[in-house]
Nucleic acid binder design. Structure first.
Lengths: 340, 340
DNA sequence: ATTGGCACTCGCAGCGAATGAGTGCCAGGC
DNA sequence: GCCTGGCACTCATTCGCTGCGAGTGCCAAT
């Protein structure tokens, strides 16, 4: 891929195809874009591009369509993420600022992202594993029934019911509460388990069966990887714009959206620092999703990627626009988590 | 609608059409069902049924299809909700029993319901308004920053951040905590507001600005109707089985599923005591959803309907099966809330 | 009231020709 | 050596036509 103009042609093809959803021919290309050459020249370039596998013709008498490889080149080299306009920035900030708690923040982000990109938006809740413990609350619902509430730095609140063998007095509960909190407040979840274990172990006194039980329940809640699979999905109705191929494209995607584990794997490792990951078509391990692309990035307070967020759509999607939106929302979301 | 056989014919048409998804003719009807009459006779009945508006012919040379009115009659008079099999009951109970908290219960119910009915399942979280307060927790995250945690009888946990003007000592916080809890523990949300106001008012002492602020934030959290719109949706991929008419049927439905307020209105008032509501096609106010039906019911501890749950699907759906599944899941869900 | 018979309707699948967008290639020009 | 206009060619799509057959409505007979 030496020739400079050929790259312009590829870029033009991608842009046109994304816009019109139809195979693009040489003539239309020259007209719509200001490349100052004749259709015949473009045809030569297109033949070369096809030879190299960047574009393909659905059938002899039709125009060309970018291949996954073509989109890949486009994304990697032919485009820069266009910054959001001031108005868009204001809209994002205004939309997210009204949130009252983490659930609200996440669901607003999802809606925002799906509206900005007109794609399906996916936002993962901040992972437990790397957040820190803010507070642990023990509430006696009944004499032998405790509610454990685990409040994390990201605003996440996890709860567990715990049935204990003997009645618990308000005093023992209070002392256990302070003991636990001094031990784990501010500690990263991953290390909080150890801290808890040291509380539970020291003595073998009878009331420490309570401490052990509570500690174990908390550790379990912290290590519950199911919780890491919590995600919010929005904009599904944008799938309607998938146009053709309901069965081959939309159905598998709908199924993937239900399988949160699959979806998270699809979005990949959270990347920090404004880096946006793009997975195009069959680049992933999922055969059925060969017609869908994922644009994702990580977010979290202070440039530490706690979770992933992104959009899922047809390979024929507006990559620059999506990447910009994803990056912008991740940035604002991170900022909000910073403040909270 | 006097004739007894005509009703059987209608029932047969509905059942066949639901199964085959194709207009059903007189001959096929006689063959597949054991009505001991000739096709000609059935044709006469069908003509009468069409006259009365229960069925209609898509075009002259095709079979008949039930109208909304036909489905309505079928649901109201021609079917009884068939009870779940023992195996199904076990499956439901086993599936729901593993849940660890309310979020988990709701999401499991959603998945269960969508799998049982092969439709889109919708489960509303228990409304705040009629639950009782179990516990209020105040946590000082920073000297002037409080986290209010509101734990309700249904297992729901609401949280609010509160910034206060002056530093709060641990003692004042503790006394306020007990004061609030003795006032509102066990009280229905709707009345808790009044109880809180009496706490906030009595004195005009400086530290009571804190009490007032906390009380106000709690009242706001309790009255936040946005929270009543929390719902869980699952089984969207079942929409793929909608077959034809993506644009006229699936797209509007996907849009409705995003609009939680619309969706809740669609499911209607929660009905208690095993009563299942069925809305067929254009019976509701939403023109675009003329091809979708809703089967819903209320659930909640002790036969008090705290929220709604149900399935949404094409008018051509298995009503008896859906009604049975919806009722069964609602019942088990209610039982679990009872225990918790 | 039910039934067999029969003429009729009309959507749909199958076929062939016309259409035209788009291509590849070649010979001439800058 | 690269670009360009010209031209023959390809082939998916569209349209009109026809034949088929499922299904109906009506009527006369039981």
């Amino acid at each position: 891929m030496q020739n400079e103009r050929r790259l312009s042609v590829l870029r033009a093809i991608v842009e046109d195809y994304v816009k019109t959803e139809e195979p693009v021919g040489s003539k239309a290309l020259v007209e719509r874009h200001g490349l100052g050459v004749s259709p015949a020249t473009v045809r030569n370039d297109m033949a070369a591009l096809e030879e190299e596998g960047y574009i393909t013709a659905p059938h002899t008498s039709a125009g060309r369509v970018p291949t996954d490889k073509g989109y890949r080149l486009f994304v990697d080299r032919l485009t820069t993420v266009k910054p959001m306009t001031a108005a868009e920035k204001r809209a994002i900030a205004g939309f997210l600022d009204g949130a009252v708690d983490l659930d609200d923040v996440v669901s607003r982000s999802t809606r925002l992202l799906s509206q900005l990109t007109r794609q399906v938006a996916v936002v993962q809740y901040p992972t437990l594993s790397r957040s820190t413990v803010r507070h642990v609350e023990l509430v006696a619902l009944a004499p032998t029934r405790l509610l454990l509430v685990l409040i994390l730095s990201t605003g996440r609140v996890e709860q567990r019911l715990l049935e204990v063998a003997e009645e618990v007095s308000e005093e023992t509960l209070a002392s256990l509460r302070t003991k636990i909190n001094t031990a784990v407040a501010g500690v990263v979840i991953a290390e909080a388990g150890d801290a808890l274990r040291t509380i539970a172990e020291p003595t073998d006194a009878p009331q420490d069966t309570l401490a052990t039980a509570v500690a174990e329940a908390l550790i379990e809640a912290m290590n519950d990887h199911r919780s890491d699979e919590r995600i919010s999905i929005g904009g599904t109705s944008n799938l309607a714009r998938f146009g053709d191929s309901f069965d081959t494209a939309v159905r598998p995607l709908l199924e993937a959206l239900e399988e949160h584990v699959v979806l998270l794997k699809l979005m990949g490792e959270a990347t920090a620092g404004g880096l946006v990951t793009v997975r195009i078509g069959a680049e992933g391990p999922y055969q059925e999703l060969s017609q869908t692309s994922v644009v994702a990035t990580g977010y979290g307070p202070g440039d530490e990627a706690l979770a992933t967020l992104g959009v899922v759509g047809p390979t024929r999607m507006d990559y620059p626009g999506s990447m910009a939106a994803v990056r912008a929302v991740a940035r604002y979301l991170s900022r909000i988590l910073d403040e909270a």
